[in-house]
């Protein structure tokens, strides 16, 4: 009698938990699928990485619902915490604007791939849908003292050799990554003195003391706004060419109209007073800058300057 009562109580418990689990599943599963589709269809790699993080967090929640709390936590820590952040770092390193070209290199490849994907979905869903799977036993019997204890027992007991091998694999991977990304310096590194001498000899003498700094104004202090020259024109060379290439800069005219709209003074006076400020830190650079075409002389210098900096940083 008592085992029957226990079974009945267990069945009642499982049905109650089943309803909650179904609700959880039908909320999480569409989110996970949306994240996966977002990874495939987003044009920028950063957006794809964030969509994939959504999917992985959803899977972590599903693991916890599937009586695997240890794996759920590991999923968040390892995948969402470490691997996705590694991906984001590399995306930042390689260039956020490196998006796919839309040209098909192999003719008909996209259609064939879509057809194959559709076929695999139909096949696998039909197989898993038609399979007569038993109701889950649950891991309560296999893990009487809790999930973490049971997993530790297995990892350090039956699977200890696999565990040791995996440790060796991890060490090898870390060493391999260091060996792959290490770069021997082929030429001698230029000292600061040599760079400065080269700037005097080859560069424009007006830029000998360094490039002008970006705009520093009363209401805006950022690297994306060009400095204003004494005559009110923006100094193009004061903004990093990387920001210009990404289209992340603000036009000086746009900013000047902002300031003019917000501030009490009229616009021309504001522009002149703001033009005074960025000239102070680089006095020698801007004192040599007369009114003639400030944008023209900066271009050839800005082209090779960051290239050389990047080479040194690596």
């Amino acid at each position: 009698m008592s085992p029957l009562a226990a079974v009945a109580a267990q069945v009642g418990e499982t049905t109650a938990s089943t309803a909650g689990e179904e609700v959880l599943f039908w909320i999480i599963a569409p989110l996970a699928v949306i994240g996966a589709l977002g990874l495939v269809f987003s044009r920028k790699a950063v957006h794809g990485a964030l969509f994939l993080a959504v999917t992985m967090i959803g899977l972590a929640i599903l693991y916890i619902a599937l009586e695997a709390p240890f794996l759920g936590v590991v999923q968040v820590v390892v995948y969402t915490g470490a691997i996705m952040m590694l991906f984001l770092f590399v995306i930042m390193l390689i260039g956020v604007d490196a998006s796919d070209s839309r040209v098909e290199t192999i003719r008909g490849q996209r259609g064939a791939a879509a057809l194959a994907v559709f076929g695999v979905i139909v096949l696998l869903v039909a197989v898993t849908g038609r399979a007569a799977l038993p109701d889950p036993v649950g891991t309560a019997q296999a893990a009487p003292e809790g999930n973490v204890y049971a997993i530790a027992d297995l990892i350090f007991g039956r699977y200890v050799w696999a565990f040791e091998t995996v440790a060796a694999v991890l060490i090898t991977a870390a060493v391999g990554a260091m060996a792959l990304t290490h770069r021997e310096r082929l030429a001698r590194r230029h000292s600061q003195r040599e760079q400065s001498e080269r700037r005097f000899r080859e560069g424009d003498p007006k830029d000998a003391a360094g490039m002008p700094v970006p705009g520093v104004y009363a209401r805006h202090n950022a690297v994306d706004t060009p400095a204003l020259l004494p005559d009110g024109t923006p100094a193009e060379s004061s903004v990093s060419p990387v920001l210009v290439a990404r289209g992340a800069t603000r036009l000086a005219e746009e900013f000047a109209t902002d300031v003019g709209r917000l501030g009490p003074e009229p616009k021309p006076g504001e522009a002149e007073s703001t033009a005074e400020r960025p000239t102070e830190p680089s006095d020698a650079a801007t004192s040599g800058l007369p009114d003639d075409s400030p944008a023209a002389h900066g271009t050839e210098e800005t082209d090779d300057e960051p290239e050389q900096d990047g080479g040194d940083a690596r």
Partner: peptide, 28 residues
């Protein structure tokens, strides 16, 4: 969970570890 057996969870754990190693080398 269906089989009431923790071996599948151990396999998933090892897949995660190998995936971490693979990501490191692949990104390099």
């Amino acid at each position: 969970r269906m089989h009431g057996n923790l071996d599948g969870q151990i396999m998933a754990f090892f897949v995660m570890v190998i995936a971490a190693a693979e990501v490191v080398v692949g990104l390099a």
